[in-house]
Design a protein around this nucleic acid. Structure first.
Lengths: 206, 206
DNA sequence: AAAAATTATGACAACCTTGTCATAATCGCT
DNA sequence: AGCGATTATGACAAGGTTGTCATAATTTTT
C-alpha cells in the first residue's frame, strides 16, 4: 500500500513514477525488475522511493491494483449485460473489447501476461482465485447454454472453459506487438474468429 | 560447448553437475538461475565450473541439447511412421507419448516450458524456428487431411495448428505436478481427450 | 517569524553474484 | 622416481542491488 505521502504527491511526479513502474514491469518478469531502474527512469532519489513504498512487492501490488481498476471500468458494461447472450457470443464480445483494451493499454496487458505465464511469488495472492473463478463462471455459462440446447451435453464444461481462457489469452496476445498496434489489432480479431469457428463447429467434415 | 575436461569427467561427478543444473533450470526462468546455486548443489568448487563451461549460457545450451537428444530418441519411432495417420490421431498419439515423456523426465518438461513461456534471450537461438516449424508441419498435415476429405476446407490450417500446439502444451502441462506424477498422468490424458473431442466436433448442437 | 511536521536526498553498509587467477593436487609417461 | 600436462581449488576483485539513516529542504502551524 503506497504511503499517504505518495498519494499526496503532485500529479506529475506520481505519474512519472507510475509510468516508469509500468514500463519496467511490462518488459521483464517480476523478479528481474529492479527498483534501481525504476527510480532512474522516474528521476526520483532512492530515498524518496522508500518513502512511498515499502518495497518492490508493495509497488507491484499497487500497480496491479491500478490495472484491475482500469479493467473493471473498461469491461463493466459488457459484464453487467451478458444476460441473454449465448456464451460464445459473450466470448466474442469480450475478446473484441479485450483487443480494444490492449490497444489502449498495451503495457498493462504485458504486465498481466507476465503475471499469468510466470506465476511469480505473488501470483496466488493476486490471481489464482481470479482465474479459477473466471473458469468457473465460464463453465457456468456453458452449462446454461447446454440447458438451452445451444451446446452439446457431452462436452466437458470445465475443459471447454479452460480452452477459451487459454486460447483467448495466449494466441491472442501472441499477435500483440507494442510497436505495431494497429496492424496487430486486425490480426488478433481475425485470429480469434478463426479460433471460435473451430470451437463452434469442430474441424471434421461431415 | 562443454570443455573436453567436462566430457572426460568421471561419470558420477558429471551426473551431479547435470542433475543440479536440470534441477535449477526446472525451478526458475533462465535469468534467475544462479551458477552459485548450481555449484553449491553439485558440490563442486567455483573454479571447477569455469573449467567446464564458459558461463551460464554455455551450460544452458548444453542442457537444452541433452533434452532435445532425449526427446528425439523418445519420439523417434512415432515421428517416422506418421504416414497414413490422420492428423488428429497423430496428435493424440504424440500427446500420449508426451505424457509418458513428462512422467519420465518431468524436469525436462518444466525446463522447456520455461523456455517457451518466458522467451529468454536464447529463445530465438534455440526454439523459435522449431516452434514455427512445428506449426508449419502441422499445418501441412492438416492440408493433407483436407485433401483427403477428413477436415473441412474452410478451416484455417495455421490457426488450427496453433490451437493444437497451444492446447497440448499448456492445458496439458497445467496438470503436471512433479510431486504427484501418477495422479496427474491420468488427468492429463483425460483432459486431452476432452480437448480433442471439442476440436473434432465443435461444441454446438445440431 | 519561529517551531513543528513533512518530505526530499544521496551516501553507505550489508549482501550477493560473476569470472579470474595463482597455486596446489593429480595423473600419465618415461 | 621425476617431470610435464591436466585438473582442482577457493580467495578475491569488480560490479550491482537493496534498504536505511542522518541531514537538508519545504511546508504548515501557531
Amino acid at each position: 500500500m503506497p504511503s499517504k505521502t505518495f498519494i499526496n504527491l503532485e500529479a506529475e511526479k506520481r505519474k512519472r513514477i507510475v509510468d516508469a513502474t509500468v514500463f519496467e514491469f511490462a518488459s521483464k518478469p517480476y523478479e528481474q525488475v529492479m527498483i534501481s531502474d525504476i527510480i532512474k527512469k522516474a528521476k526520483i532519489p532512492r530515498g524518496s522511493f522508500y518513502q512511498y513504498f515499502i518495497d518492490k512487492e508493495d509497488l507491484y501490488i499497487y500497480i496491479i491494483g491500478v490495472i484491475k481498476q482500469e479493467k473493471m471500468t473498461f469491461f463493466e458494461s459488457t459484464l453487467n449485460n451478458y444476460n441473454g447472450l449465448k456464451f460464445l457470443d459473450l466470448v466474442r464480445k469480450l475478446y473484441e473489447e479485450g483487443v480494444q483494451f490492449a490497444l489502449k493499454y498495451p503495457r498493462y496487458v504485458k504486465i498481466m501476461d507476465f503475471l499469468m505465464k510466470n506465476k511469480n511469488p505473488l501470483y496466488d495472492k493476486i490471481m489464482a482465485e481470479n482465474v479459477l473463478y473466471a473458469e468457473k463462471v465460464y463453465a457456468n455459462l456453458i452449462d446454461q447454454d447446454k440447458a438451452k440446447g445451444y451446446i452439446r451435453e457431452d462436452i466437458d464444461s470445465l475443459t471447454f472453459a479452460k480452452i477459451i481462457v487459454q486460447l483467448t489469452t495466449n494466441i491472442a496476445v501472441e499477435e500483440l506487438d507494442i510497436d505495431n498496434e494497429v496492424e496487430s489489432f486486425k490480426r488478433m480479431l481475425e485470429r480469434n474468429n478463426q479460433i471460435l469457428k473451430i470451437i463452434e463447429y469442430g474441424v471434421l467434415k461431415g
